[in-house]
């Protein structure tokens, strides 16, 4: 599964450069996913398990370093548990459904942390995604780590600041459509810069300096044709005309 995710990331990054927004979903059994995490954690000293966890870590880091907008959709039938929950934490935004869809065979979606979220899967800044998410708020990190093992519904996950938005089925389609369309209208380079910055607050490491926000710093954005080209945002600013963007992501 990790290999499939890795392949998908690389494929989309290389071959589908105009697809600027990715919607990340999962599908599966919540308990099986939790058991899988527990199995990995109880055998970390075994060489094969160690390699698997490291591979998961690398793949998630690749997701962090992807210059695409990432929205996670936590819908009925999903299994955002443990290491799969890291996908939601890595995304620029996460949307979780309150309750379930009319006529859906599944019950309301669950978001659940496991031990995998509290240590082994660090980002390029050498911090866990939870620590990065609550950077500078140690009490908040401790609070969410105390939620490990607890199945959270949309309201609880939203109260715990683990998801960005919780909407009911009435609002779901409309809010998503508007958010995606809005995002797609922005400058791809500016988004790359903004996203890289927001994904990596806190201390720099060698990896973040090379792959992270410093490579997508404002000087880079400003010298791109989307900003300083003749139809770019800087030239068009104040004229009432919208810039023409090259939609390809880097």
């Amino acid at each position: 599964m990790t290999r499939s995710l890795d392949d998908a990331i690389l494929h989309l990054r290389t071959n589908e450069r105009e697809i600027g927004t990715w919607l990340l979903k999962t599908q599966g059994d919540v308990d099986v996913t939790a058991d899988h995490d527990a199995f990995l954690l109880s055998h970390v000293d075994h060489w094969a398990v160690r390699e698997i966890v490291l591979y998961i870590k690398r793949t998630l880091r690749r997701l962090d370093q992807t210059s695409r907008t990432t929205f996670t959709l936590i819908e009925p039938g999903s299994c955002f548990v443990g290491w799969l929950a890291e996908i939601a934490l890595a995304a620029d935004r996460s949307y979780m459904l309150e309750g379930t869809f009319e006529g859906s065979e599944h019950t309301e979606p669950i978001f659940q942390l496991t031990g995998m979220n509290a240590g082994p899967l660090t980002m390029d800044n050498h911090l866990t995604r939870l620590t990065t998410r609550f950077w500078g708020r140690d009490d908040a990190v401790a609070r969410v780590e105390s939620l490990v093992g607890e199945p959270l519904d949309a309201v609880e996950a939203s109260d715990a600041e683990l998801v960005t938005f919780a909407y009911d089925d009435i609002d779901w389609d409309d809010e998503l459509r508007l958010a995606i369309e809005e995002r797609a209208s922005f400058s791809p380079d500016a988004l790359t810069g903004m996203e890289a910055n927001l994904r990596f607050p806190g201390p720099e490491t060698m990896e973040t300096k090379i792959f992270g926000r410093l490579t997508a710093w404002q000087n880079w954005i400003f010298t791109r044709p989307n900003a300083s080209g003749s139809d770019g945002a800087l030239q068009r600013y104040g004229t009432g005309r919208r810039p023409d963007f090259d939609r390809k992501r880097t």
Partner: peptide, 18 residues
């Protein structure tokens, strides 16, 4: 405007929501 001649929007275009 820029979209002159296109069918009028029946739903809010996301780009102009705000």
């Amino acid at each position: 405007g820029e979209h002159k001649g296109e069918p009028a929007w029946q739903e809010v275009p996301g780009a102009y929501r705000a």
